[in-house]
Amino acid sequence: MELREATIDDVETIRSIARDSLHSTYTDFLDSETIDDAIDQWYSDGFADELESDDAVVLVVERDDELVGYSQSDLVGQQYGTGRILWLHIDPAARGSGTGVRLLVRTREKLLDSGADQIECFVLADNEGGNEFYREHGFERAGQRKVDIGEETFTENVYVEQDLGDEGWGTVDELDIDGTTVYVNYGEAARGSQSPFYVAYEDQERTTQYGWFCGNCDSLENAMGSMGQIECNVCGNQRKATRWDASYL
């Protein structure tokens, strides 16, 4: 899995994924014509210009060299202090493999790296699956707002990160990797040269650490050295040593 910033060359595929995703999820309360009109309006020629904007963050996710999802966010407020995840779409054929969770995590990380100190997520109140997704992955509803789609007005729920005290934000994903079941906590991350590493546990309660999950190639073939360095034996992603060993001084 590769996650990267979107480019002009991705626009047509992004539009196609948005159309397929909305048709598979929203037709219970939006008719097909309204969806198509909205897609044409949202992802017209102006969307390419948005990719170049300093306050826009659009990420795409690829599997086997094929784009299967994207997130669309922006930075607003004083000094761009609020990162808003406006859309997160996964191709219906690629759902159920944890791709959406990984895209959510990386989008959050990108917004924080870009200067945001709080994250908001938006999803239509009628989209039961979308609301459940955010509730299950470290967010809670904080309010609502009205949005116009076509000639109709809908209620959109606003989610913020749950207050977990000293633990901070986190979401745990159960993964089966080469026959091994691990529980990856995306709230415990270490910066890598290509992508973050995340702590993987043997149990859902997170009492016993299994190792480190490489966010670049989805492997567990790595370990932390005595000075905090981590290197993935599969893709070469690495985290440099973070402290001096006193015995060398």
Rank of each mutant, 00 (worst) to 15 (best):
I39E: 03
I90C: 02
Q79P: 00
V58A: 01
V61G: 13
V60S: 03
L86N: 13
G77V: 11
Y43K: 08
I39D: 06
Y70W: 12
G69K: 04
D40S: 15
D55A: 13
A38V: 09
S44H: 06
H89D: 12
A38I: 05
G83D: 08
G46K: 11
D74L: 10
R84A: 02
W87K: 13
I39Q: 05
A48T: 11
G81L: 06
L59S: 05
V76N: 07
G83P: 06
L51G: 01
Q78E: 15
I90M: 13
V58W: 00
L88F: 04
A56F: 02
Q72V: 00
V68H: 04
Y80P: 00
Y70F: 15
E50R: 01
Q79R: 13
R63G: 04
A38F: 14
S44F: 00
R84I: 11
Q41I: 12
D64N: 15
E66M: 11
E62S: 09
G77Y: 12
V58N: 01
E62G: 04
A56M: 11
R63E: 15
L86I: 11
A56H: 06
L51E: 00
L75T: 07
L67Y: 07
D65C: 04
V60N: 04
H89Q: 11
G69I: 06
L59I: 08
V57K: 02
S71T: 15
E66T: 14
D65I: 01
W42E: 07
E62W: 03
W42K: 04
Y70K: 09
E66K: 11
Y80Q: 13
D49A: 14
A48S: 11
W87T: 12
L51S: 00
V57D: 02
S73Y: 07
Q72S: 06
V76C: 06
I39Y: 07
L59W: 08
I85R: 00
L75C: 08
Q72R: 03
F47R: 04
V60K: 01
L88P: 01
G83A: 08
V57Y: 02
S71C: 10
E66G: 07
D55C: 14
Y80V: 03
I90V: 12
D45I: 10
L51F: 01
D49F: 03
L88C: 09
V57R: 07
A38T: 14
W87L: 12
V61D: 04
L67Q: 14
Y70V: 06
E62T: 09
D74C: 09
D49Y: 08
E50N: 02
E52Y: 03
A56E: 10
T82A: 05
L88N: 08
G77C: 10
L51C: 02
V57N: 00
A56S: 14
Q41M: 10
Y70E: 12
I85N: 02
E52Q: 09
L59K: 11
V68Q: 07
I85F: 02
D74P: 04
Q79H: 12
D40F: 08
E50S: 03
D65W: 03
S44G: 10
Y43W: 12
V68D: 00
D54L: 15
D55E: 15
D64P: 09
A48N: 04
R63I: 10
T82S: 06
I85H: 00
S44K: 02
D74Q: 09
G83Y: 05
D74H: 06
I85M: 08
L88G: 08
S53K: 07
Y80K: 09
F47Y: 13
G69C: 08
W87V: 05
D40W: 08
T82N: 00
L51I: 01
D54A: 15
S44A: 13
E66S: 14
D40E: 15
D64V: 05
